[in-house]
Structures are given as C-alpha cells and as structure tokens.
Design a protein around this nucleic acid. Structure first.
Lengths: 226, 226
DNA sequence: TGCGATTTGTCCGTATGTATT
DNA sequence: TAATACATACGGACAAATCGC
C-alpha cells in the first residue's frame, strides 16, 4: 500500500538497475531472509513499478546467486548449505592468491597504507560489537587486493562471492547474534600481504580461509541444531 | 516474415530459456558476428515471440558476457579486445590450476581414460581441418578437469570463460580461416595432467596458456592490421 | 544547435500455463 | 479432482534517450 519503498527516482540509470540495487541491499542486509519468498506482483506494487523491470531485476539477482527461482512456481532468497559455503571459501582462497600474484611486484606505499587503514577500521568495527559493521569491514579489507589488480573478470567474480558471503554471515548473525571476525585473525594476513614471501602468503591465506570456513560451518551446525 | 527461426516449441522450459539458448548458439557459431547489432523488436517477430521474454534472454546473455547493451540505444554482440583476451587467459590459468589441485589425489583410471579419449578426438578434429570442430574439441579436452571437480562455482565460472573463448576463436576464424590449435600443443598438457608432479603441471599450464594467448593476440593484431 | 527517426525502457490489461493446496 | 495463486507470455501503447542529419 505504502508505495514508498526505495527506488530513488532522482538517481540515474534505469528502473531495472535501481530495483536490482534495492533488492540486493535488502537481501544482504537481512531484511529479506534466506528461504523467504519473493512475489513479483507484490514487490512491483510496493516499489511502484510495473512487473517488467522487476522481473528483469529478479533475473539478474538469480545470476548473482542471491535468488533462486523455480519455473512457474516461486522465487526465494537463496539459502546456503555447508557444501555451498565450502565451495565459496575454497574458491575464494584460489582467487585471492591469484590476485596477490598479479599485484605482487606492483605493491606500493599507497597499497600498504590502504591495507593498514582498512585493518584499523576492521579492528574498530570489531570493538564496536556491531556485527554488520565488522563483517562489512572484513570484506572491505579483503577487497583491496582485488581492486588493486584492475582485472575486471577477477573483480566481478569476487563481487559475486562477496555477496553470498555477506548474505551468509548476515543470516548467521540473525540466527544468534554473536561471533564476528576474531580480533587477531587478520594480523598475520596483513603482515604477509605487505611482506616479501609470496609462498608464506599462500600458506597464511590458506590457513586464514580454513579458519573462516571452520567458524562458518560451526555456526551452521549450531543453527541447524538449535 | 519467415517466423521460423528456431525456438523449438515442443521442448521443455520457458521461452526465455529457449530463446537464450538459440541466441547463444548463434553468437558462438558466428552467425551473429562480434560488433553486429541485435534489435529487440526484429528478433521478436523473427522468433515469433513477444518482446518480454526476448528482453529477458538478452539480459541473461549480457550477464554471460556475450552481449553488451547501452541504455536506450543498442545492444551488440561483444567484441573482445586484447585486454579482454589477456584477462581471460590469465584467469583461466588460475582456475585450471585450482581445478587440478582439487582433483589431484582423486584422479582415477576413468579420468585418465577420458583425458586420453578427448585428446585423440582433438587430434582427429585438428586433422580434419574443420576449425570449429578443433576449437570445440580443445575446449572439451580442457573441460574434463572442471567437470571432475564437481565444484559448482568453479564450473559456472569456467562456462562463462569458455563461452567468451569460443566466441573469440570463432571471430578469428571468420576473419581468416587458418590457425586452429597446434597439433602437438596438448601432448605435454595431457602428460602432466596424468603425471605425479603438481608443480610441473603448474608450469606446463602456465606455458600452455601463454602460448595460447600469444597465438590469440597475434591473430588479433593481424585482424586489426589487414 | 536543433529536429526527427530509431530503439530501448516502461506501463497496463489480459490471457494462459504450471505448481500447489 | 478442482480451485487457487502465481509465474509466464502477449500486444499495444507511450516515454525517454540516443544517434544521424
């Protein structure tokens, strides 16, 4: 009824694009929880747009892996299982190592400074005990290496992974609000990232991701259990 | 006029899906050449469908990286430049090494047999001098390791890359019909893939891809030049 | 600079197919 | 089996933006 609901008219670009942005934001923020249903016509009237652009936005979020629609029946927010999370973390390890390989000999002071800044922000966010902030800050820290590569395919691939990671952690957070990133977990990562031993970074990255995966799966089990 | 043009009505699934399949096939086969224009309304009448499903199919091919549409103006078949090709080959190297890592300790006789089969088929295809066959056979050979991983994210990622590779080679072929994959180029690849030295495979893969990239860029320059 | 033509983007009413109950 | 809800598809119309003249 309200017909409010985002879709800022003044910003540029097409409706389809803006709708996709709003939908993505609501899914990642947890406003639309995993498994919950998305009804085309409902959202269209809520957003004050026709079904056409809305359908196309939904299709796009399907390709991004945030929505799942079964033909002629329903579309729901994706609900990740243990297998999905394992795939995400293993793939992420490979991508991030590739990213570091690409920039290894091009790392400069700006890179080191940015890395430090984002690490400090992460520690701040963790201390604030606002888990959304902590998650966002962690992903922001890890994003730096991807941005630095200037490799479009890699960056897009990372965006897709990051979205699903964010969705997953948001869901975990809603299930039981505790457990952000660990305060000391990124010291070694940052240190290796600015160091001179690529092979060491490889090991640190691998261990870092395995720890992240372990945390994720623990929480997944707790959620299923209770 | 003709209103023929594919879109097999009897097969399952939605129009959007079938239209996307037909479009993809025509792009990858070279029937729609890189840079050529795609007009919504035209295709809709040709295919005998309305603009709705057609638009959605176009959107999907946009996400797959085969079409590029500029808002309110036009949509064209993507035309890859040197930078794109470099990104594809470097990313592909990283993905394929990751894939081998995943299956390294799980390689069995079935894998080795399949690899051999696909290699023989590739050699046959090269000898036939039908370049489309040779390209398809080469991609089929490389696909094996991805399929074996059973890693959905990785497989989807590879599908996207493979599509653009196929598009690129088809374009090169139309420009001057020569230069398929080299006959001896995959001996070492297959040998390393069934061997016991992962580090050697890494090197072979890297060199193999660099050679492929070099061939691709040479042809690109020739195309631009004459 | 402006103008018209072309094409994409969007809306709405309606009809049909499919899954679910 | 029938009814319902919803996704899918159609067609005609108009708005908005781009491009060529």
């Amino acid at each position: 009824m309200s017909r409010d609901s985002g879709i800022p008219k003044l910003s540029s670009a097409t409706y389809r694009e803006r709708i996709a942005d709003v939908l993505r934001e609501r899914i990642l923020s947890g406003a639309f929880r995993p498994g919950s249903r998305i009804v085309e016509a409902q959202l269209a009237t809520q957003f004050g747009v026709s079904r056409g652009p809305l359908r196309e936005a939904i299709r796009q979020l399907n390709d991004e892996g945030l929505l799942v629609t079964s033909d002629y029946s329903s579309t729901r927010v994706v609900s990740l299982d243990a297998r999905d999370v394992k795939e995400i973390y293993s793939f992420r390890t490979a991508l991030e190592y590739f990213a570091f390989q690409l920039i290894w000999d091009r790392r400069d002071d700006a890179f080191r400074r940015q890395l430090h800044n984002r690490h400090v922000k992460l520690l701040d966010a963790i201390e604030s005990c606002i888990e959304e902030r902590a998650i966002a800050a962690e992903l922001h820290l890890h994003s730096l290496v991807y941005e630095t590569t200037d490799h479009q395919i890699l960056i897009n691939s990372w965006k897709g992974l990051r979205g699903r990671l964010q969705l997953y952690w948001a869901a975990v957070h809603l299930a039981h609000n505790e457990h952000g990133p660990r305060p000391g977990a990124h010291e070694e990562y940052v240190d290796a990232a600015i160091g001179d031993d690529l092979e060491r970074l490889r090991r640190v990255l691998s261990e870092h991701m395995q720890q992240g995966l372990a945390d994720a799966l623990t929480l997944l089990c707790e959620r299923r259990g209770g």
